[in-house]
């Protein structure tokens, strides 16, 4: 089985994000990490590939020059990566991201595309469905517990009230949720091998996109204002001295819920 896994490189969530004053876009440092959400997609891809003697190719789009996040996913065991890295892509909308990724994936060929449900920094949560529509295949979103083989894929799909079992022929796109599997940690050997694994670099132009189709120009939207939100203030903080529950009871009374 030929498995494509979409992985996003994002600024380290442990550091505060900054917005560029002029473009209002998140400032992307040179070194970006693998979005934690996508470790689950990589893990599922690896498990399915191991069960089917398949291959896992990573696809990532970013205008930052970063390889760190891709190397993290290669170190987990993916075979190779296709990186579309181009300054022209700065400020791209989700739809552009999906078009670029879909073009790269189609060029490579695929049985299954795996993405995360929602990226940590973008959280539009529509890229996988857009990719599916462009590639004209089913999209199995909110997927946990994935099984694939015999030309089909079966998943449990989280719903607001429980879950559905959904079955689809391949090829298909999967958007997986975090709870599905426990992502493996790269071994030392994996980290060393990752340095030798092939990373193909493409530009938007290599995939047939003009500069006006992508980036801010092709996004179909513009950010007109950014303003800080007056946050909720911290209230009273007390150390439990064995009697803190009484203070909670008093506040529940004040709020008239008891």
């Amino acid at each position: 089985m030929k498995i494509a896994v979409c992985v996003k490189q994002i600024p380290d969530p442990a550091t505060p994000y900054e917005l560029d004053a002029e473009s209002h876009l998140v400032v992307r440092p040179q070194d970006q990490v693998l979005d934690d959400t996508d470790r689950y997609g990589v893990e599922i891809g690896l498990q399915l590939a191991e069960a089917s003697e398949g291959t896992v190719t990573l696809f990532s789009m970013s205008p930052s020059g970063s390889l760190q996040g891709i190397r993290q996913a290669l170190a987990m065991g993916a075979d190779k990566a296709v990186l579309i890295d181009d300054q022209a892509l700065r400020g791209s909308a989700a739809l552009t991201t999906a078009r670029v990724l879909a073009a790269a994936i189609e060029r490579e060929g695929f049985d299954l595309v795996i993405a995360g449900t929602e990226s940590t920094d973008g959280y539009t949560g529509v890229v996988p469905q857009q990719i599916a529509e462009i590639l004209d295949v089913p999209a199995l979103s909110f997927a946990r517990r994935v099984e694939a083989g015999d030309g089909k894929v079966t998943i449990e799909r989280q719903t607001a009230t429980g879950y559905d079992v959904v079955e689809s022929p391949l090829p298909a796109v999967l958007a997986v949720t975090a709870g599905s599997v426990e992502p493996r940690y790269p071994t030392f050997k994996g980290i060393m091998q990752a340095k030798q694994k092939p990373i193909e670099n493409l530009t938007a132009g290599d995939l047939g996109f003009g500069d006006d189709d992508v980036g801010i120009a092709g996004s179909g939207q513009s950010i007109t204002a950014v303003a800080p939100i007056a946050g909720r203030q911290a209230g009273e903080i007390i150390e439990d001295d064995g009697e803190a529950h009484l203070r909670i009871v008093a506040l529940l009374e004040e709020a008239k819920v008891i």
Partner: peptide, 23 residues
């Protein structure tokens, strides 16, 4: 933000060539 809402929004966006303004 329901599952089907997001699935339809994503597909419609690709079909019509319009961005999705999210959240």
């Amino acid at each position: 933000m329901g599952n089907t809402d997001r699935d339809v929004a994503g597909r419609l966006s690709a079909r019509l060539g319009r961005p999705v303004l999210a959240a």
